[in-house]
Design a protein around this nucleic acid. Structure first.
Lengths: 96, 96
DNA sequence: CTAATATGTCGCCGATCGACGACATCCACG
DNA sequence: CGTGGATGTCGTCGATCGGCGACATATTAG
């Protein structure tokens, strides 16, 4: 389960899943509701493609996106487990 | 670990993680390299925001995106585990 | 070789992006 | 009360999107 860090990663995943399901770009484009050329550019890793269309493409391929468990992989080891300031501010701002 | 299906889900996740880290929109925008207004619209769930900026935003928050394990959650129960046509086609097309 | 299919590339064009400044609102603080 | 910080909204503007048709390039089948 490779992490998705760049638009190129996304393109690779989409192309991979499309090929696995034996779909050509035309039919995938029809299912997603997008032009064939757009599929081409997405699979190339277009950085400025709209997230809405991207998410719909993934769903058309049956691919579900999730957030990796943060506690399992401490990105910043120096970060304190509890943030006192955050707690204080939360208490300072009662809901509504 | 909620699945991410819509741009609104994405916005909620971003806003949530930003607040958890006690960051205001201005500093997050500076870290990502975007305008403050862009953060506002992303957190509202803008569907046509560029994936490149979105991914950079998630990384700035220490959020890693992954693909949910397909084998664990069979989306289409009727789908065969092995796709013979796909295997045949793969054999038909030797790499390079 | 020819035909068919799949994929990649080009220019055109209306629609939208994302940055920026300015302004408005809300709320904690002095 | 007024001040400041955080957030949301409104125009404007150059840049880019995404769709479309047309063409180019594989790769495969007959």
């Amino acid at each position: 389960m490779p992490p998705i860090n760049t638009p190129t990663d996304l393109g690779a995943i989409i192309r991979d899943h499309r090929r696995r399901q034996n779909l050509d770009q035309v039919t995938l484009a029809r299912n997603v509701g997008v032009s064939r050329q757009w599929i081409v550019e997405i699979e190339k890793g277009k950085p400025r493609a709209g997230i809405g269309l991207v998410l719909r493409t993934l769903q058309a391929l049956g691919v579900t996106l999730t957030v990796a468990d943060e506690t399992a992989t401490p990105r910043t080891p120096g970060r304190p487990a509890v943030d006192l300031d955050a707690i204080v501010d939360a208490a300072r701002r009662p809901r509504s």
